[in-house]
Write a protein that binds this DNA or RNA. Sequence first.
DNA 1: AAGAGCCCCAACCGCTCTTTT
DNA 2: AAAAAGAGCGGTTGGGGCTCT
Length: 287
Amino acid sequence: MGRAPCCDKANVTKGPWSPEEDSKLKGFIEKYGTGGNWIALPHKAGLKRCGKSCRLRWLNYLRPNIKHGEFSDDEDQIICNLYANIGSRWSIIAAQLPGRTDNDIKNYWNTKLKKKLMGFFPKSKPQHQQNFSSPPPLIQTPSTSTTSTYYTTQPNFESLSTPSSLFSGAFYQTKNYNPSSSSSGEVNFNKGMDSDFGVGDLMMFYNGYEENQRSMLSGDGFLWGEGSVSTNAQLDYSLEELKQLISNSGSTNISSKDACSTSHSNNLVFDENMTQPHQGKVMSYYY
DNA sequence: AAGAGCCCCAACCGCTCTTTT
DNA sequence: AAAAAGAGCGGTTGGGGCTCT
């Protein structure tokens, strides 16, 4: 038996929101809150909209302190860094960028940032590659007001200085790597870790050469692949310089530097002490 | 000036996860 | 413990606006 629809699809308005609808929704939520029930909210607010649609509209557009418009270089860096570490976990990435929504970041990544970064990648594999015979090193960095906990295969991306430095490490998205959230706002990366190994799809970038590989996720939460990961050619350009390079030339001809930066500019921290029964180490994310 | 093609982004869809009954 | 309901997430789409020819 299929699941009942969340709303009567025949009797709900779809498409762009009108100013009247916006003001009704905004006014209602400001006065009464969401009541923890989005499904019932449109009826109470006098809107012919699906609850999910109301939620989306509120979260992505109407709620206070939403930031629209140009992303700053700092925001670019944070997005790139987190994407390189955790993949398309937009909600988690959005939590690091006050005022930005997951939808915004997702759109920005898909339409602009990805292209901006890809524009730098040569179409050939790098000369030097390094095989992982053991789990990759962890990053431990001081945190600011927010703390994220992930693991990475790359020592760090120095200030996210350039696209190629961003992606010279493993660039992965694995099906077994799904953070779950608790009501306290803590996200635990413990799914799929009950067994000793999980196998997921690993996407890797060899300084621009993209390919899918199989990856292994061990019981203690480390991920490493069967393939190799580029470690060369970090480019210490500022984002502004990169933008200039993009605009100046379609072909990139950038001298390489050491790929492995040693400074720790991000705020990803691995808490080795956090464990859960039967589930090995836990990756935690606080915000 | 007009048509075609492209780009961007708001919104939808369908799925999984969490909570409630 | 199981089922149902609700919340949240990520992928995808469609249309409006912009740019190019």
